[in-house]
Each structure stands twice: as structure tokens, then as C-alpha cells.
């Protein structure tokens, strides 16, 4: 990135603006959490709060990436590397969570045998060595 001094001066102003924006959004995100008036949804942390916090964080981080890290005008090669990296990072998180959210459930017959209608995988797991397992009734 070859730039003249005037260009750089202009950039410097942009950097300061971006810095100020980041400050403002940090304050916003804290206000939303600490002042009940700004709280979304139920008092305390819940899904809308989390979503809002993550949206702000994503916005802030994209500013840092695009402006400070010059990703708004970078070479194609770097985008290629980053696209794959992000894809793999998402697959790591996404597939891991997918696996967590899709455990084996006891077969309907088994549940009937146990005379427990609402057995979940969590319940089955919780009957770990420590807890006394209920003997299956036949």
C-alpha cells in the first residue's frame, strides 16, 4: 500500500474516527448490561441480550479488521486464506455443537420399559457411576 503523506493524513483521521466509534459502542454494550432501563427481554442475561452483545462485538471487530488491519483493500491471497480459515473455525464450532445437540436417545421401546415418559439423554447420562441407577423394571 503505497500512499502519499496527504493520503496518510486522511487515513489518520479515519483511524481516530474508528477509535471513537469503538469507544462509543463499548459504552453502549456496557450500558445495556448494567442499566435495567436498557435491558432487553427478561431482566438478567437472556437470548436477546446475548444476541445484542454479539452483534455489537461483531460490528466492532469488523471495524478493526477492515480499517485497522486494512482488510478493506487487501490482496486476494489473504482473503482466500481467511475465508477457508473462517469456514473451518465455523465448522469446528458448528459441527461440535451439532453433535452435542443430537445425542442418541433411548429407543421408544426402551423408554416404555423404564416406565419413564420423559427420559432425556441428560437424564440417562446423569445416572453415572456415582448416582444409583434405577433398576430397569421388566
Amino acid at each position: 500500500m503505497e500512499s502519499s503523506t496527504e493520503d496518510l493524513q486522511k487515513h489518520v483521521r479515519t483511524y481516530l474516527m474508528v477509535g471513537a466509534t469503538l469507544f462509543v459502542f463499548t459504552i453502549v454494550t456496557v450500558l445495556v448490561r448494567t442499566v435495567p432501563f436498557f435491558d432487553f427481554g427478561v431482566p438478567g442475561v437472556d437470548a436477546p441480550d446475548i444476541a445484542f452483545g454479539l452483534v455489537i462485538a461483531t460490528f466492532k471487530s469488523s471495524l478493526v479488521m477492515l480499517i485497522f488491519m486494512h482488510l478493506n483493500h487487501e490482496r486476494g491471497l489473504i482473503y482466500k486464506v481467511l475465508v477457508f480459515t473462517v469456514a473451518f473455525a465455523i465448522s469446528l464450532m458448528g459441527l461440535t455443537l451439532f453433535a452435542q445437540g443430537n445425542p442418541i436417545r433411548p429407543h421408544a421401546d426402551v423408554i416404555e420399559h423404564l416406565h419413564v415418559s420423559d427420559v432425556t439423554a441428560a437424564d440417562v447420562e446423569s445416572k453415572a457411576p456415582g448416582a444409583k441407577a434405577e433398576p430397569a423394571k421388566h
Partner: peptide
């Protein structure tokens, strides 16, 4: 450095995945 940062993305990606996995996994 961009390659290194890519690996850092995976490092922290793994940690954030751990965070979500542990938090979502609380029974």
C-alpha cells in the same frame, strides 16, 4: 503474519467453541 493469524483464529476458535460447548452443555 496472516498465516499465523489464521492459525490464531483456529486457536481462539477452538477456545470459543469450548466456551459455547461447555455453557450449552450445562444440565
Amino acid at each position: 503474519i496472516w498465516l499465523f493469524l489464521a492459525s490464531e483464529v483456529m486457536l481462539f476458535g477452538g477456545l470459543f467453541s469450548g466456551y459455547v460447548f461447555l455453557r450449552a452443555g450445562v444440565r
